[in-house]
Design a protein around this nucleic acid. Structure first.
Lengths: 225, 225
DNA sequence: TGCGCATAGGACCGTACGGTCCTAATATCT
DNA sequence: AGATATTAGGACCGTACGGTCCTATGCGCA
């Protein structure tokens, strides 16, 4: 596609993640993308709404490449992939110092009620995200308890990450996300069958802040045998 | 205070939770509160921003009365109080069919980056919320593992609830929140010392959707008993 | 009666917004 | 050289916004 288009998309993505969709004017986008005037912009996009949709698309693609892709790595143990994915979410947030939050969560909170077009597109984003996690859980099924509900667990993972990113943004403190990410890993580990020991990366072991290595308790609840 | 003021506050709260702060005009609020004109509104509030702050205050007070109050009930076991609180969050969302999400999360996503005044106020809301959970966890400390980090656990609870409420709004499906609430209870139960059996209300037992009563596995990690 | 105050209603202002339209300059291809 | 599309730049329009100001009506109270 035209170079200009992606230039506009990039500028818009930045502005929208900083100020939200409603508070980003097309004049701002024009300035950010260094276009010559309004007509130049409307040559590439038929409306601001249309621009918003494409920005959302691009941001999901970006997230799919840099985040979700990890969930499909064929050479790594599925449950370890899940941990790596959580780390990737933390890493992506770190790039902006956690200041901009999730592009999906932000748009969702801003527009889910008021704008049906955005709502269904964001719903689709969450659904595709959830479905990637579900297939990973399906793949990991031999290692998991029989009663693990993949639909629910995938939702829980997404919700806690989205909530964590939001709190991180409000508190301007990345350690909020880091702590929740570590706890989320423990929650996932809770679903692993007895006897299965999860592989952990060296650099993940100290993800927690508690002194006596919470990570060790990751080898599952207990019972049965 | 004047009846009119609360009338305005109520109308504004509704509109803001439906459309967000930016997309709610003071003319809309005037119409909603059936005021006679702009000057009438500006007689009670010096600016739209000021109105927003007071709406946020009121909404936190409401939440404190109807939600957080449960965390302080003196006659109930602390960990059971925590479960009841989670149920209360679900119940509060059910009132609107989950359509409006969290007033704090919504404002946070919309304004945390752009408007420092709102950001610090929302941060304070989360902090007060977290501190209530922390004191409850302190009270429950004899029942909890030694290595439970109250700061982290309280953040995790808030984040997963906020994320759940957001997803519920996007999917327009209350069962998303219900499932996450049930999973969150299981996560909390994971921190309870072996040998301690959590009391559960009858009406909480089937909070999950999985056929083989996940609720039963709430009796903590394991054995004992 | 007269004072102060909450209600009422509307004109007005400056600014910003999304979007359209029109005209030049520049580059590309025939 | 001439026709064609892309870039550039700006004037313009209707609407909506937050906010101010001014006037007039009803009200209780000294």
């Amino acid at each position: 596609m035209s170079d200009r288009r992606t230039q506009i998309l990039d500028a818009a993505a930045t502005l929208i993640s900083e100020r939200g969709f409603t508070s980003t004017s097309v004049d701002d986008v024009i300035k950010g993308a260094k276009l010559s005037g309004k007509s130049h912009f409307y040559h590439y996009f038929k409306s601001k709404e249309e621009l918003g949709y494409e920005v959302l698309n691009r941001q999901f693609e970006r997230f799919a490449e840099r985040g979700l892709a990890i969930l499909r790595e064929p050479m790594i143990d599925p449950l370890e992939r899940l941990n790596l994915f959580i780390d990737a979410v933390v890493a992506l947030q770190s790039e902006s110092g956690g200041r901009h939050g999730s592009p999906f969560g932000n748009l969702a909170a801003e527009l889910a009620d008021a704008h049906e077009g955005f709502r269904v597109r964001i719903e689709a984003v969450f659904e595709r995200w959830a479905s990637q996690i579900r297939s990973l859980l399906w793949e990991a099924r031999p290692q998991l308890h029989d009663d693990v509900d993949a639909v629910r667990l995938s939702r829980f993972i997404i919700a806690s990450l989205e909530g964590a990113v939001l709190m991180t943004r409000v508190k301007r403190d990345l350690s909020v996300l880091e702590g929740i990410a570590a706890d989320l890993k423990r929650f996932i580990a809770m679903h692993v069958r007895d006897g299965t020991v999860m592989q952990l990366h060296r650099n993940l072991e100290d993800a927690g802040s508690s002194p006596h290595g919470i990570a060790r308790s990751m080898s599952v609840p207990s019972m049965a045998g």
